[in-house]
C-alpha cells in the first residue's frame, strides 16, 4: 500500500478513508482468524448439505402437521408435457424455474426432477444419507468453533468490542449516511463501527444461535428432552420452516458482509483476517 492508493482515480471515498490513515496495527488475533475461516467453511457446507436434505421433501408448511393448505413454499416439477417444467410456488404464486429449481441438474450433469440443482448441494448427487452426515459433522464444527470464539473473546476481553451498546444506536444512521455518501465523514467509533456492531451482534447472538436451535428442534431425540424449545418454535415439523428462513437470513448477511469487505478496502480487510494486521481509518479508535 502506498500513495498510489490514494491517488488512483475512480476509488470510492470510503475506500481511501479506510485505507490511507494511521499506522498498521494488530486487529484480529489468531483465534479470531482461525475461527472466522472455519466458521465460513462450516456455513458453506451446512447451507449446501442443508439444501440437499431439503431436496428430499422440497416444501415448507407454516404448520406442525404437514398441512398442504398452509404450504408457504414448494419446489415442484411437471414431466407430463413434451418438455419438463420446474416450478417454485411461494405464498401461492407459482413461477417457472426450469433449470434453476424443480427440474434441474441431478449432480452428474443430467437434467432430473430435483428441487435444488446439483451444483448448489453437498454432495451434488442425490444422497440424503451422505448429506445428513456432512450436515451434522459441520453442525458440530460450527458449535465447537463458535464456543472457542466466545470463550476466547471473553477471556481476552475483546468480545465486548463487537457488542452493540445503547450509545451506538444514535450513531447508526450517521454511519449509514456515510456509506450512502450522504455524509463526508463517519462518526468516530471503536474497533468496529456502529453498523458493524449491529450486524455482528445480530449474527453472533441471534442468527447463529437461532440456526443451531431451529436445527436441533428438528431432532426427535432432542425433542424428547427439550420439548419446551420445540414448542416455542411451533413444533418439530414447524421448526423446519424457521430453520430454512434462518438459512436465507444467513445468506443475506453473507452477501452484505462480502460486499462490504470488498467495498471498504478489500486488501486491508483481507489482510486483517488472514495475517491479523490492519491500517485503521482516522475515525477508528481502540476502544469499543
Amino acid at each position: 500500500m502506498g500513495p498510489m492508493d490514494v491517488a488512483a482515480p475512480g476509488r470510492s471515498r470510503a475506500r481511501t478513508a479506510d485505507e490511507a490513515h494511521g499506522p498498521v496495527v494488530k486487529r484480529h488475533n489468531a483465534v479470531v482468524r482461525a475461527t472466522h475461516w472455519l466458521t465460513a467453511l462450516a456455513m458453506l457446507v451446512l447451507v449446501m448439505s442443508g439444501l440437499a436434505i431439503f431436496n428430499a421433501a422440497p416444501y415448507l408448511d407454516a404448520s406442525d402437521q404437514n398441512n398442504p393448505a398452509r404450504r408457504v413454499l414448494a419446489i415442484e416439477s411437471d414431466t407430463s408435457g413434451a418438455t419438463p417444467v420446474g416450478t417454485l410456488t411461494i405464498f401461492g404464486h407459482t413461477i417457472k424455474t426450469t433449470g434453476l429449481l424443480g427440474y434441474t441438474d441431478d449432480g452428474t450433469g443430467q437434467p432430473a426432477e430435483r428441487a435444488f440443482p446439483g451444483w448448489i448441494t453437498f454432495p451434488a448427487e442425490q444422497d440424503l444419507a451422505g448429506a445428513r452426515r456432512w450436515h451434522f459433522f459441520f453442525g458440530w464444527t460450527l458449535l465447537i468453533v463458535g464456543l472457542i470464539y466466545f470463550i476466547s473473546g471473553i477471556v481476552r476481553k475483546d468480545l465486548a468490542l463487537i457488542v452493540l451498546r445503547p450509545s451506538d444506536i444514535p450513531k447508526m444512521w450517521p454511519m449509514q449516511a456515510y456509506y450512502l455518501k450522504l455524509r463526508k465523514e463517519p462518526p468516530p467509533h471503536g474497533k468496529y463501527n456502529p453498523l458493524q456492531k449491529a450486524g455482528y451482534t445480530g449474527l453472533l447472538f441471534v442468527l447463529v444461535p437461532f440456526l443451531i436451535l431451529t436445527g436441533a428442534a428438528l431432532s426427535p431425540g432432542i425433542d424428547a428432552f427439550a420439548g419446551p424449545l420445540t414448542a416455542l418454535l411451533g413444533g418439530r415439523q414447524f421448526a423446519r420452516l424457521w430453520h430454512f428462513a434462518a438459512m436465507l437470513a444467513l445468506i443475506a448477511f453473507t452477501f452484505g458482509h462480502v460486499g462490504l469487505v470488498i467495498s471498504t478496502g478489500f486488501f486491508n480487510n483481507m489482510r486483517s483476517m488472514l495475517l491479523g494486521t490492519y491500517r485503521p481509518s482516522k475515525y477508528e479508535g481502540p476502544g469499543p
Binding site: D105, G107, T108, G109, W119, F122, P123, A124, G130, W134
Partner: peptide, 14 residues
C-alpha cells in the same frame, strides 16, 4: 465451473 464444483463435492462424499 459449477459442474466442476459438483465433481469436487461428489468426490469428497465418495
Amino acid at each position: 465451473a459449477l459442474a466442476g464444483c459438483g465433481r469436487v463435492t461428489n468426490a469428497l462424499n465418495e
